[in-house]
Amino acid sequence: MANTPQSKKRARQTERRTEVNKARRSRIRTFLRKVEEAIAGGDAAVAAEALRVAQPELMRGVTKGVVHKNTASRKMSRLASRVKALSAS
């Protein structure tokens, strides 16, 4: 348990940041799930639009430190290739 005033303050700050980061991570997952559902639905136009909306949200997670840069890039790349394959067929 935190003993010094500074460590007590850091514990309070960590709790607040954890809540913010959880919300941010949840929001990112929601946008990614919408892309996945659009791909599963088979509608290329809807999937492309969902991907276009999800991309800045995912990259915002990178700048906020919630998601690693390479992880976000990998997710975007894989989703983009699946959307492209959907529109090609």
Rank of each mutant, 00 (worst) to 15 (best):
E57M: 09
R12M: 08
R78Q: 13
K69V: 13
F31C: 03
A88Q: 15
S81H: 12
A48G: 11
A80V: 03
A2G: 11
V20Q: 13
R29M: 03
L79H: 10
A80Y: 04
A72K: 09
I39W: 08
R33N: 15
S81W: 08
T18Q: 10
L51F: 00
S87A: 15
R25P: 00
K22G: 00
K64T: 07
E57A: 06
G65I: 08
T14W: 06
R82S: 06
T63H: 11
K34I: 12
L86W: 14
N3E: 14
R33A: 13
A2V: 11
K8E: 08
D43M: 05
Q6A: 13
N3L: 14
S77T: 15
R10H: 12
R78D: 11
A80C: 05
R29S: 00
R16D: 09
G42R: 12
T14V: 05
V35N: 09
M59R: 15
K69H: 12
K84Y: 08
N70I: 13
L86C: 13
R52P: 01
R16P: 04
A11W: 09
A23M: 07
A11L: 15
E15N: 06
A80P: 08
S81D: 09
S26E: 15
R74E: 01
L32P: 03
V46G: 02
A40I: 11
S77W: 10
A44D: 04
A54Q: 04
K22A: 07
D43G: 01
A85C: 06
P56L: 07
R52G: 09
V53E: 15
R16E: 12
T63Q: 14
P56M: 07
R82I: 05
V67S: 04
T14G: 07
A48D: 12
A23S: 08
L32A: 04
S26L: 09
T4S: 15
A88T: 14
L58R: 03
M59T: 03
R12G: 01
N21T: 01
R25G: 01
V62R: 10
K8N: 08
V67N: 04
G41H: 02
E49C: 04
V20N: 08
R74C: 04
V46I: 09
I39E: 09
V46H: 02
E19P: 01
R60D: 10
R52T: 11
R16G: 06
S7G: 08
E15Y: 02
A88V: 10
P5D: 09
L79M: 15
R17E: 02
E37G: 04
V20Y: 12
G42E: 11
I39C: 10
K9V: 07
L58E: 00
R29C: 00
I39S: 09
L86K: 13
T14Q: 14
S87W: 09
V20M: 12
R25A: 10
A44I: 06
K75A: 03
V67R: 07
V62T: 10
S73K: 04
E19N: 13
A47K: 07
L32T: 05
R74Y: 05
L86R: 12
A40H: 10
R12C: 00
R12D: 05
R60Y: 02
P5H: 07
H68N: 11
Q6K: 14
S87T: 13
V67W: 03
Q55V: 04
T18V: 06
I28A: 01
V53P: 05
K64F: 05
A72H: 08
A11C: 05
N70E: 14
G61Y: 00
V83F: 09
G65T: 06
H68I: 01
E36V: 02
K34G: 08
V66P: 00
L58P: 02
